[in-house]
């Protein structure tokens, strides 16, 4: 096959299609105002997809609603971006199982983006107290000082204390005592 043929294929291949909106129009002549108008129409009508065609130009605007997606693989040939799976973390003591993720939308606020989120620096098992039966290091609503131990993550029989990077109030704890955590998983939020 020659390079020219390859290029031809490439051109026919679907272009990078974003998840939130999809437009198919001549590369340059995208009518921004029309798209805007269609987008506004979305809000009014609560539709999830609008397609609009005039001579030589077709605009399709689509948005995804929160349909909890089973783990699903779209055939690559469709040229669609695969659903983006959020890091799903562990469910209780058991390990995570295929199909437990939801695709879109995300929770109203992504805890990972919260400025007060404390994330696990390693994969391991998280403990909320220094030993079984002892008082937990932290409580929701309780005060916390910079440098305080908030949890322990055990990896390979080594107890690694996780310390608060700043002082504040514990807003939310996401981890139960003795559960596995992944690298970068949000453990708690301080405000």
């Amino acid at each position: 096959m020659t390079n020219a043929e390859t290029k031809k294929h490439t051109k026919e291949a679907p272009k990078n299609i974003g998840k939130e909106s999809q437009t198919k129009a001549d590369k340059v002549n995208i009518d921004a105002a029309a798209v805007k108008e269609l987008a506004d129409l979305f809000k009014e009508t609560d539709l999830s997809e609008i397609e609009y065609e005039t001579a030589g130009c077709r605009i399709r605007v689509a948005r995804n609603f929160g349909i909890p997606a089973q783990q699903q693989f779209y055939p690559a040939m469709q040229g669609m971006q695969m659903p983006s799976f959020q890091s799903q973390g562990f469910q209780g003591q058991g390990a995570i199982v295929e199909g437990t993720t939801t695709d879109l939308p995300k929770a109203p606020i992504d805890p990972a983006k919260h400025p007060g989120a404390i994330k696990s620096p390693m994969v391991g098992t998280a403990y909320l107290s220094s030993q079984p039966g002892a008082d937990p290091f932290i409580k929701v609503g309780g005060p916390i000082k910079e440098g305080d131990t908030v949890m322990i993550v055990e990896a390979m029989k080594v107890m690694n204390p996780i310390r608060a990077p700043k002082s504040g109030i514990v807003k939310e704890i996401f981890i139960q005592d003795g559960t596995p955590v992944e690298f970068d998983e949000v453990l708690l939020i301080i405000e």
């Binding site: 783990q71 695969m82 983006s84 799976f85 995570i96 295929e98 390693m122 994969v123 690298f183 970068d184």
Partner: peptide, 20 residues
């Protein structure tokens, strides 16, 4: 973290993020 979307991660029965 860079491989959260990788095919073997999608297909595996379980997945664990182990680092950056």
């Amino acid at each position: 973290k860079a491989d959260a979307e990788a095919m073997h991660v999608r297909l595996a029965d379980e997945r664990v993020c182990i680092g950056p």
